[in-house]
Design a protein around this nucleic acid. Sequence first.
DNA 1: GTAATTGCTAAACCTAACTTCAGCTCAAGG
DNA 2: CCTTGAGCTGAAGTTAGGTTTAGCAATTAC
Lengths: 159, 159
Amino acid sequence: MAKSAGVAIGYLSDRTGLAVSAIRYYEAQGLLEPWRNAGGQRRFHRADIRRLSFIMIAQQFGFSLPEIRGFLKTLPGGRTPTPEDWSRISTGFRQHLDARIETLQKMRDNLDGCIGCGCLSLPKCALYNPKDLAAEKGKGPRYLMGDSPETAAAPENEA
Amino acid sequence: MAKSAGVAIGYLSDRTGLAVSAIRYYEAQGLLEPWRNAGGQRRFHRADIRRLSFIMIAQQFGFSLPEIRGFLKTLPGGRTPTPEDWSRISTGFRQHLDARIETLQKMRDNLDGCIGCGCLSLPKCALYNPKDLAAEKGKGPRYLMGDSPETAAAPENEA
DNA sequence: GTAATTGCTAAACCTAACTTCAGCTCAAGG
DNA sequence: CCTTGAGCTGAAGTTAGGTTTAGCAATTAC
């Protein structure tokens, strides 16, 4: 069972709708591990279509590429997700999703209490309580309230 | 009622928790319009604390700075939001929030149908239908499925 | 056998929302 | 008057998730 010919990157691109550059980028991020043919071109398993599909779907659920790499690493032998793997992982997705929905609902409740108020007083307003709100991850001021450069992992020390 | 002395940027920073650099950045983005004192330093209205609070809260709701600039421009005379302004605008926030919650709930329903399936077939899987899902705006591949550079507003034409 | 396609790499560019830096000037306190 | 702290500007750096470009090499199609 020698590694069969494998498929080229353009084929995966056609099958998934992803740009060739994106697939190469995912490889650079450790999400895929193609081998090379004699001429140095990447060759992929057909099953990597499923792997890429998994990546795309996980992205829709708000996971970052490092997180997705984490999921893929939990698969024995670095295999592509099987339906059983999917069942296990998607249960985790569901929890993630539930948490986000709950956060937004809490936000909505707070907002309802504040529509008639309009005090916009940061020390008092329930709308301005990042611990609950969690904002949109990855955006906004990085050191916003209680997440100062001091408190966060030492700036120059760990690079 | 000559413009009173006004407050310095560091004062706003202390009162809002925002970095001085962030406040300057907001000015550059047209969200604030301080004047200058004789020495060329920025002077702000005290009410700009409310304005900045508004900005911070709107960010929590997922609005971009250009969008927030839009909200602030709807205020007569470029004034800082009053409780009445807030009531009007926050009603819009609420709709935005409702829509996001609905999207996520739809996603959860789809996921429930897919946990036992695991086909991960992009052409068939309900989990992979960006029209419904709307992903997380601003992230992910820009030209992902049905949003190609061709189809999207002409790239170089409208800047 | 040759042309057209596809693939390769490294580096630069992109957006959003900021931060950091260098090199000054201004303002306030004693 | 002198020092210290706060403010100033413009440019470059940061992160995530890619795209674009340039200049070549390999593959495929005819």
